[in-house]
Design a protein around this nucleic acid. Structure first.
Length: 333
DNA sequence: GTTCTAGAAC
DNA sequence: GTTCTAGAAC
């Protein structure tokens, strides 16, 4: 076996090793455990539920595993409850073509807002037929007793399928970067709404305490700032969540703390862009006229045809004088 | 699975 | 100039 294949095989065993070592384990029972996806979370909250029984993947599931699945779902609900969130905020299910060599059930918040959500393939693995919901798997096992594999060509096609559709509104785009910016807008709105609700709740609670204490308390304490710590990662700055038993994955900081004017902080200012499909276009009246764009004026895939023709050229690219970056790299070597 | 990188697109 | 993508490597 080639060294790279051994390395890949080692990577495929990462979840199993973590399970054995108890690493990143949030909840566990005798039969299964919930691990937090620390290395590459694809949303603000991303967990995986692993059975302790050695089951390679979803294709190895049989009807006899239904009680185990029930138990795994119980653990999923437990971890969601632990985060003080609602199951409706999550997608729960399995990848039909998982990379890992141990069955793992994803419990992922449907914001899909994370710096690790970098490629269109990442999106499509959770938002296409490549992702089978818990309910669907359960039904398949009940009726057929097993899950059939998906042909490799279909997997490949679904991985790269465009346009990509937002899971929260009618927005769609050919450009994955555009979708990521769009998801950020959704996340920002939801987070703002959540925090404002929490603010009202905290205020009510404090008012109650003041009455109980005969107004011994004061309101002079500064309001809590959730963006108290900054960690630079990729294009965004992220900070850990300020509350909860398990900290969330990644969180952006903003140029200022004014809620009416919050923007993501980029390492480099984004260049001016032409009018594009943004959230506004997907609001009520846009439902009947979803996201017209310059991409829609041309055939799909027209902008990014497969570029296989230059593969061989790349191998000799160090000698090319037309690429100053390549020359610089060559000099360093 | 992720990271790195060249080349294309903008 | 930056952003985006796909392929190679790990």
């Amino acid at each position: 076996m080639a060294e790279s294949e051994i390395d890949l095989e080692f990577k495929r065993g990462e979840l199993t090793r973590k399970l054995s070592a108890g690493e990143d384990v949030v909840i566990q029972s005798e039969r299964a455990a919930v691990l937090r996806n620390v290395t590459c979370p694809k949303a603000q909250y991303h967990f995986v539920v692993l059975p302790k029984e050695e089951i390679a993947n979803v294709l190895a599931l049989k009807r006899e595993h239904l009680p185990l699945l029930d138990h795994m779902m119980d653990l999923a609900n437990d971890v969601i409850k632990q985060q003080q969130l609602s199951p409706s905020d999550f997608r729960i299910g399995f990848k039909i073509d998982s990379f890992m060599n141990r069955l793992n059930m994803h419990v992922i918040s449907n914001d899909f807002y994370s710096s690790s959500m970098r490629r269109i393939q990442h999106w499509n693995t959770f938002n296409s037929d490549l992702f089978i919901t818990f309910q669907a798997i359960y039904a398949l096992l009940c009726v057929k007793g097993s899950v059939e594999p998906m042909p490799a060509e279909q997997v490949e096609q679904l991985l790269h399928a465009t346009p990509v559709h937002c899971n929260q509104c009618s927005f769609y785009t050919e450009n994955f970067g555009q979708l990521k910016r769009h998801l950020y807008i959704h996340w920002r709105e939801r987070e703002s709404e959540r925090l404002s609700k929490m603010g009202v709740a905290n205020l009510s609670q404090r008012m109650g305490q003041m009455q109980i204490n005969g107004n011994g308390g004061t309101m002079s304490q500064r309001p809590f700032n959730p963006f108290y710590r900054q960690i630079r990662m990729h294009n965004y700055q992220f900070v850990p969540r300020f509350q909860g038993t398990v900290r969330p994955q990644l969180r952006p900081t903003y140029e200022n703390s004014n809620w009416n004017n919050i923007r993501p902080h980029y390492q480099h200012p984004a260049p001016p862009r032409p009018p594009s499909n943004d959230l506004q276009k997907t609001q009520p009246d846009a439902a009947s006229n979803p996201a017209p764009s310059k991409g829609a004026e041309q055939p799909l895939h027209a902008k990014h045809p497969k570029k296989k023709w230059y593969v061989n050229k790349k191998k000799n690219s160090h000698s090319s004088s037309s690429n100053p970056k390549g020359d610089a790299n060559t000099k360093l070597i």
